[in-house]
Computed example of a mutant assay.
Amino acid sequence: MDFDDTAALLVIDVQLGFDDPSWGARDNPDAEANIGRLIAAWSDASRPIVLVRHDSIAEGSPLDAGSPGNAFKDVVADAPHELLVTKQTNSAFYGEPDLHGWLGARGIRQLVIAGIQTNMCVETTARMAGNLGYDVTVPLDATHTFDLEGPGGIRLTAAELARATAVNLSGGEFARVVTTDEVLDAARG
């Protein structure tokens, strides 16, 4: 793993609305601290940082645009950044302004993706980035998700979903799945 000076950090949906108890049990209580470490390292190295915010249009959503839950958490609220992408879907590549166009105009080919939720917006954005030809790295411990129920009452814990995301991204060759420490070591080297 080797990051050039243009490697962009995408910080996805680190918003207050994800603290709402309606989401249920979450994993990885260190996610926000690790995201903060990545932001600090990227800022110190003058590498590009992109913040992504989910502006929900679902009635009553904790992430509803204009609601207090739509705001960024403290770890991200004052983060220096070159671009803010707002979206209403799982992928940052379907947001405004056009993320792919912005990255392409700057010759950015390497992405480090962190944020919330591991198996939703982080995974979807990473899969799309991989399909678009980016060199994608996901520090899994700089993400978190929530327990989720699927068809027939099947319920997976947040930790199980995070492991599934790691397998999907790595096994499917969409992204390199590592730790925050590994990213920081490579970024310094």
Rank of each mutant, 00 (worst) to 15 (best):
Q117F: 07
A105E: 15
T165E: 06
D44L: 07
K73R: 13
F18R: 05
L184I: 03
P80S: 10
A25T: 14
D5T: 11
A114N: 07
A164M: 11
V14H: 01
Q15T: 08
P21G: 08
D147W: 03
N70S: 15
D141R: 05
A186T: 06
Y134D: 04
T137E: 00
L63V: 01
T124H: 11
E59D: 13
P97N: 13
D4Y: 10
A129E: 06
L83F: 07
D181Y: 00
A129W: 06
E149K: 14
V85P: 03
I113P: 00
W23H: 15
F18L: 09
V178M: 00
A45C: 08
L9N: 00
V112I: 10
R155V: 09
E149G: 13
D20I: 07
F174K: 11
G150P: 00
A65S: 11
L10Q: 02
H54I: 02
L84Y: 06
D74T: 12
P21N: 11
L140H: 05
S46N: 15
E59M: 02
D13R: 00
I57R: 10
D74I: 06
L132Q: 09
S91D: 04
R109S: 08
G171A: 12
I35A: 10
D13W: 04
R127K: 12
L83G: 05
R163C: 00
E149T: 14
T124P: 05
M120S: 01
P62R: 11
A65I: 00
T89K: 15
P151V: 08
R47H: 08
T125V: 05
V183I: 11
R106D: 04
I39S: 05
S56Y: 06
L10D: 02
V85I: 14
L169V: 07
R47F: 04
A77G: 10
G130C: 07
R155A: 10
I35F: 08
L169F: 03
E123S: 01
D4K: 11
L10G: 02
R26M: 11
L169Y: 02
I108M: 05
T143A: 11
D181N: 09
Y94L: 14
V138N: 01
A25Q: 14
G189E: 14
D19E: 14
G101S: 13
D181G: 06
V178E: 03
S61Y: 09
M1C: 04
H81I: 04
G172Q: 10
N28I: 03
L132A: 13
G115Q: 05
T145G: 15
Q88S: 12
F18N: 02
D27Q: 10
V11H: 02
D74F: 04
G69V: 00
Q15I: 05
F93D: 01
D4F: 07
R53I: 00
I154F: 05
A33Q: 15
L84A: 06
I108P: 02
M120Q: 01
D98G: 09
D141W: 04
A162R: 07
F93Q: 01
A142I: 06
G60L: 09
G17M: 00
